[in-house]
Design a protein around this nucleic acid. Structure first.
Length: 476
DNA sequence: ATGTCC
C-alpha cells in the first residue's frame, strides 16, 4: 500500500521514502473525485519509475492515469542526458499514438442529414480493426522513406499539403529516425497497414464545436461554435508494436549489462549515452514517423470523402497533430538551470506554453494546441499549453479520459448493441466491426473526461479552448 | 495498443 499525500488542491505526492530506491518523490495530478478511481497498481508504478537512474524532479502521472506496461499510462518522466535512461515502457507499445484535428468551413446545419452517408464513406475508405490492411500498397522503398521522413513522405507524395507539416509536432518528421534500426519483422507488420486506423480506442469522428471557452485561442486555431471538425486518433499499428517488442528485449539485456537494478522487469531501459539507448531512440523515432505518415494518409482520404459528399473542394485545414506516446529530447529548467532532458510522455500530451521555439509561427504567441480525444460518445476537447506546464510537468498535460474498466470486464458487463442504441437516441451514429468492439469502448468504462480536463485547467498546465461533441464515429 | 499466446 503506497500512501498518497495531498499537498494542495489537485496535487497528490508520493513521499520519496514510499519505496526503497526512489530517487525523487512521485506526483499525481488528481482531483478528490478522481483519486477514488485511481488503481493502487498505478500508484505503485509511479513509485517504481521514481527509482530509475537520472530521473528529474518527480515521477509524474496525469489525472487520466491508469496501469500500463511498466510505466503508468498518463505518466511523465524526464531524465538527465548524462546519468539518465530511456525506456520503451515509458513510451508504450503504440509508438506515437496520437490525435489530429481537421477543421472544415462547414456548419452544423450543413451536415444535418448527411452524417450517415459521410461516416459510411469514411468507414469504407479508411480500413479499421485488428490486423486490417490498407488499400495502399507500400513498397520496400516507400516503407523506408516513411520510417525516415514520416508525414513529409506522405505530403510529398500527394497525401496532403505543406501546411499540414507545419501543424504537426516535429513537423511530422522526427529527427534521428533510422529505418536501419527497425527489424525485418516490424517492417513486415507495418508494410500492409500504412493508412489504417487500428482498433480499440482509435477512432475517426465527425464532430461539432459545442462551446468555446477561450476566444483568442479558438480564433488562432480557426475554431468557432457550430463549426464541423474531424478528429483522427490512431498510431503506428503493428510496426510500432513490433519495434517496442524488439527493443524491450534489447533493453532488458542492456539493463543487466549496465547494472541497472529494476524495481519491475517492465522498466527495462538503457543509459542515454549507450548504443542500445541510441538504437532504441532511432527505431522509436522511425515508429513515430510511421504514425505521422499514417495519420496524414487518413487525413487525405477524409478530405476526399468530404469533397465527394459536398461536390466541392472544401478547405479542411489541419489544426494540429499531437503525439501522446513518445520520448523526446527537450530543454527544460530544473532548479533554475536550463537542461536538455529526455522527456517520456506515455498517455500524456506535450502542452508547450507560448514562446517555445518548437511551436509553429502561427501558434507561437498563443501556445500549443492540445487535442484531447474523448471516449466513444463523449466530448473531446481542444486545450492550449500554458505556463504551469513549463513549471510543473515538463510541458505536459493529460491525453484523454483513461480507462476505469478492463476490456475483458467491459465485454462481460456492457452490451454493445444497447450502447449503440443509446448513442443513436442522442443523435450519434456509431460504425464498428462488432458489438464487442463497442462494449470495450463504452462511455462508462472510461473516466469522466470533463473532470479530467477541469483538473488540468485548474492546475494551469493547459487551458480549455473548445468542447467538441460527436455526430458520427467510426471505430476500429 | 497488438497478427488480443511463439
Amino acid at each position: 500500500m503506497v500512501n498518497l499525500v495531498k499537498v494542495r488542491e489537485d496535487i497528490y505526492e508520493l513521499p520519496i521514502d514510499s519505496k526503497p530506491g526512489m530517487l525523487v518523490p512521485g506526483r499525481i495530478f488528481l482531483s478528490d473525485l478522481l483519486v477514488k478511481d485511481l488503481e493502487q497498481d498505478a500508484i505503485q508504478q509511479v513509485a517504481n519509475v521514481a527509482t530509475l537512474p537520472g530521473i528529474q524532479k518527480y515521477s509524474m502521472a496525469m489525472p487520466d492515469a491508469h496501469v500500463g506496461y511498466g510505466f503508468p499510462i498518463g505518466g511523465v518522466a524526464a531524465f538527465d542526458m548524462e546519468n539518465g535512461v530511456i525506456s520503451p515502457g515509458g513510451v508504450g507499445f503504440d509508438i506515437n499514438c496520437g490525435v489530429r484535428l481537421l477543421r472544415s468551413p462547414l456548419r452544423f446545419e450543413d451536415v444535418q442529414g448527411k452524417t450517415d452517408a459521410l461516416i459510411d464513406s469514411l468507414y469504407r475508405e479508411v480500413p479499421s480493426g485488428v490486423g486490417s490492411e490498407s488499400k495502399f500498397r507500400a513498397s520496400e522503398d516507400v516503407l523506408t522513406q516513411v520510417f525516415n521522413h514520416g508525414a513529409r513522405w506522405a505530403v510529398e507524395n500527394g497525401y496532403g499539403v505543406k501546411a499540414d507539416l507545419e501543424h504537426c509536432e516535429e513537423n511530422g518528421e522526427m529527427k534521428g529516425a533510422d529505418s536501419a534500426k527497425v527489424s525485418r519483422k516490424a517492417r513486415d507488420r507495418g508494410k500492409p497497414q500504412l493508412g489504417t486506423l487500428g482498433s480499440g480506442n482509435h477512432f475517426l469522428e465527425i464532430q461539432h464545436v459545442e462551446k468555446i471557452y477561450d476566444e483568442a485561442a479558438a480564433k488562432a486555431f480557426g475554431l468557432e461554435e457550430g463549426g464541423i471538425t474531424v478528429m483522427i486518433h490512431c498510431g503506428s499499428r503493428g510496426a510500432g508494436h513490433q519495434i517496442c517488442t524488439d527493443y524491450v528485449r534489447t533493453l532488458e539485456q542492456a539493463s543487466r549489462k549496465y547494472g541497472i537494478k529494476l524495481a519491475d522487469r517492465q522498466l527495462a531501459c538503457a543509459p542515454l549515452t549507450s548504443k542500445e539507448a541510441q538504437d532504441y531512440f532511432a527505431a522509436m523515432a522511425a515508429g513515430a514517423n510511421y504514425a505521422w505518415a499514417n495519420r496524414q494518409m487518413i487525413s487525405h482520404w477524409v478530405r476526399e470523402a468530404f469533397n465527394k459528399q459536398f461536390h466541392t473542394d472544401l478547405k479542411m485545414d489541419l489544426v494540429y497533430d499531437v503525439a501522446h506516446n513518445v520520448a523526446k529530447y527537450e530543454e527544460h529548467t530544473v532548479d533554475g538551470e536550463k537542461k536538455k532532458l529526455c522527456v517520456h510522455r506515455k498517455g500524456a500530451t506535450r502542452a508547450f506554453a507560448p514562446g517555445r521555439p518548437e511551436l509553429p509561427a502561427t501558434y507561437r504567441d498563443i501556445g500549443q494546441p492540445v487535442i484531447i480525444p474523448g471516449s466513444m460518445g463523449s466530448a473531446s476537447y481542444v486545450l492550449v499549453g500554458a505556463q504551469g506546464a513549463m513549471e510543473m510537468t515538463f510541458g505536459s498535460t493529460c491525453h484523454g479520459a483513461g480507462r476505469v474498466m478492463s476490456r475483458s470486464a467491459a465485454k462481460k458487463e456492457v452490451h454493445g448493441n444497447e450502447i449503440k442504441r443509446e448513442l443513436a437516441e442522442r443523435g450519434i451514429i456509431v460504425k464498428a466491426p462488432s458489438a464487442a468492439a463497442i462494449s470495450e469502448e463504452a462511455p462508462e468504462v472510461y473516466k469522466d473526461i470533463d473532470e479530467v480536463v477541469e483538473v488540468v485547467h485548474r492546475l494551469g498546465i493547459s487551458r480549455k479552448v473548445a468542447r467538441l461533441v460527436p455526430l458520427a464515429v467510426a471505430k476500429g
